[in-house]
């Protein structure tokens, strides 16, 4: 029974490049479909050249550029909705259950440490910025440890799940920087010189005071805990198929 020659499979992989498939998840599925379809046609006695077999399967089954664009768009939207909903549900669950106590306990421990060290109120901001960066760092650690980020480091197709997870970490951190301070202003807080930082920064931090900063840090802690949960459940499950 005739089947595809190795060079024909390589040709299919090369030919798929013109369709500019961005993500590994979609590429793997389309590539397997194309090879399976061409193999099946060849085994059924269709002796046309690979170009003809490929084009027929691509146009009829996948829908060419338009079909791939649609597939990418809907997959992106579905996954985004799924991950966002999971994150929101997890975030909300802290307020609906006794889990909030964990966040409060973490904050109390942090606050006690801050008081015993007698640090300036502005150090809260630095801690807050650090806490907001934690999801991103955790995702990188988990992804790198398990080789999930290989799609970025090995010039392969990037993973849609990885891309979406990185995007999910951004709103909180960006919102913080854009909403409160710019990065250069934050950096000035690391110096001991009391004259550093803008008047607006200082004014705002003092306006918030300990209660305001407490709320912000508690919310940030809950966000981190929710994100970690998603990374350890949904993310691990979804990325297993890349």
């Amino acid at each position: 029974m005739k089947t595809l020659m190795p060079y024909e499979k390589r040709w299919i992989a090369k030919r798929l490049k013109i369709y500019s498939i961005k993500y590994a998840e979609i590429y793997n599925e389309v590539y397997d479909h194309m090879v399976s379809a061409c193999e099946h046609k060849r085994q059924s006695g269709d002796n046309r050249p690979i170009l003809s077999l490929f084009q027929e399967a691509m146009d009829q089954d996948i829908g060419s550029h338009k079909g791939i664009a649609w597939m990418t768009e809907e997959r992106e939207a579905l996954l985004k909705e799924h991950l966002l909903t999971a994150l929101k549900q997890e975030f909300k669950s802290y307020f609906d259950s006794a889990k909030i106590l964990w966040a409060c306990a973490a904050y109390v421990a942090y606050f006690t440490a801050m008081q015993s060290l007698q640090l300036d109120l502005r150090w809260h901001l630095i801690v807050l910025a650090g806490v907001l960066a934690l999801p991103f760092c955790y995702l990188l650690v988990v992804g790198t440890k398990n080789g999930y980020f290989r799609t970025i480091t090995h010039k392969r197709k990037t993973s849609l799940v990885n891309t979406l997870m990185i995007r999910l970490t951004q709103p909180a951190a960006l919102g913080f920087y854009a909403g409160f301070f710019s990065i250069p202003q934050l950096l000035t807080l690391f110096t001991s010189d009391s004259e550093t930082g803008t008047q607006l920064t200082k004014g705002f931090v003092h306006f918030l005071g300990h209660p305001g900063m407490s709320v912000l840090i508690t919310v940030a802690l809950i966000y981190v805990a929710s994100f970690v949960k998603i990374v350890n459940t949904d993310y691990r499950r979804l990325i297993a198929h890349v």
Binding site: W70, M71, E74, L78, A240
Partner: peptide, 22 residues
């Protein structure tokens, strides 16, 4: 035809009706 299958499969997967393995 024309990419009808995969969006349907992905939707069912997102709805939790299908499981996947590789």
């Amino acid at each position: 035809t024309e990419g009808a299958l995969y969006p349907a499969l992905h939707k069912l997967e997102a709805d939790g009706l299908l499981e996947t393995s590789t």
